[in-house]
Design a protein around this nucleic acid. Sequence first.
DNA 1: TAAATAGTGTCTCTAAGACATTATGTG
DNA 2: CACATAATGTCTTAGAGACACTATTTA
Lengths: 242, 242
Amino acid sequence: MEENAATYDPTRYDRPSVTVDVVIFTLQNRELHVLLVKRRRWPFEGYWAIPGGFINMDESLDQAARRELEEETGVRDVYLEQLFTFGSPDRDPRTRVISVAYIALVRADVQRLRVSEESTDVRWFPVRELPRPLAFDHDHILDYAISRLRSKLEYTTLAFQLLPEVFSILELKHIYEQILGEKLDKGNFYRKIKEADILEKTPLVREGRGRPTHLWRFKGDRNHEKQFVFRWREDRVDVKHE
Amino acid sequence: MEENAATYDPTRYDRPSVTVDVVIFTLQNRELHVLLVKRRRWPFEGYWAIPGGFINMDESLDQAARRELEEETGVRDVYLEQLFTFGSPDRDPRTRVISVAYIALVRADVQRLRVSEESTDVRWFPVRELPRPLAFDHDHILDYAISRLRSKLEYTTLAFQLLPEVFSILELKHIYEQILGEKLDKGNFYRKIKEADILEKTPLVREGRGRPTHLWRFKGDRNHEKQFVFRWREDRVDVKHE
DNA sequence: TAAATAGTGTCTCTAAGACATTATGTG
DNA sequence: CACATAATGTCTTAGAGACACTATTTA
């Protein structure tokens, strides 16, 4: 039979539900945090979960992720990247649900959390003290998000997404240490960041207990950060999950 | 209202269709090739497309990709990796279709192509001579697959997936050159591959016009190749698309 | 001046890249 | 032998890592 726009039947196949889940990272008290929501309803009622929701039929996946992000945090124009698509048949007891997971990085200062109709609570958790187990397969998604964040940090300027407009070089180093989970050498860090030539000095200084520190600004457009590749280390080990 | 398994209504939301598309690479005549199918029906009738199809409700995404791969090539047990999920609302004129794209690498010797009910032709194309434009957004997907393949080659042992059981070191070098699209230094390649200690020498040699060449075998399990990280170069530039 | 924090300098060692050389087969 | 292809060796240089040192503020 000849098929065309008029005769095509879109209901011929069963269709799964498709959700977008967004793992939202931020830096709070110099520590990496993740936003989680507490589920109001079955399934996994009372469990913490990665925020997300069903996609609308007229929006792209990226748009859906941005919408979810804004609904949860009120934040727009942040770094957002597709992580992975999770689709085990039994990952959601309600029905077949395929979840396209995203990573978002937001700056510490922007936060006005809202409890949605789906949740009873919203909170930032330090990545080292998560309320596990999370709902669904969200432990798994979150672990993968963290490992991806870690490996991307080493060859992108992603870390700047977590910083305010101006910052000191040692603050930047601190972010790297937080996400990589290891101490870095101060001298080597200074050398590399200077060589990379991606920062510009502002006239500002911040006073503290010891010698005041110069404040710097990221040269690149934060939303197009990929053009600058500041590679902290060459090492990288890709983590395969599942 | 209290919700549970009994009262949950899975038809509450509109659902998109979800397909799995598999970009299948192989090496033929020492050149990187991609498998494409010619579409039998509207839309994009007569255009070449990346093979794929709708997922079944009871299979995982990986299983769906393996099923598609086997339907098209008869090949099982190959390297398979999720690439990206494409979901623009207008990428398919029939209905809202979200496509989870995969990359597969198959060895040159395994090929018995089958024309499916959906296609009028199946063929391997050298990546440098593709019948563009492809159907749907498949040009875009394919470009991304190639760039991903390239960058992964530099820090994984992925190349071995394209080789037969035994091979010479210069053949391996040739694959790297094919995928990376540049000449590599022979001496340096020998040095790195020896240092990596991921090959074992077989007693076999292959005779040719000049000095015969030793044949080697990959030490690792091909299906769990990630444990060995042979990094050809440290350089890598991540390509962002869209 | 001591403590605290910011920032610089220097040495070593590894490894990447360029390129020269040697090895082992055939006609 | 000449030719063809395989395989190894060597030199240079850039840069990562370790760590010592200097600078500038407050108490």
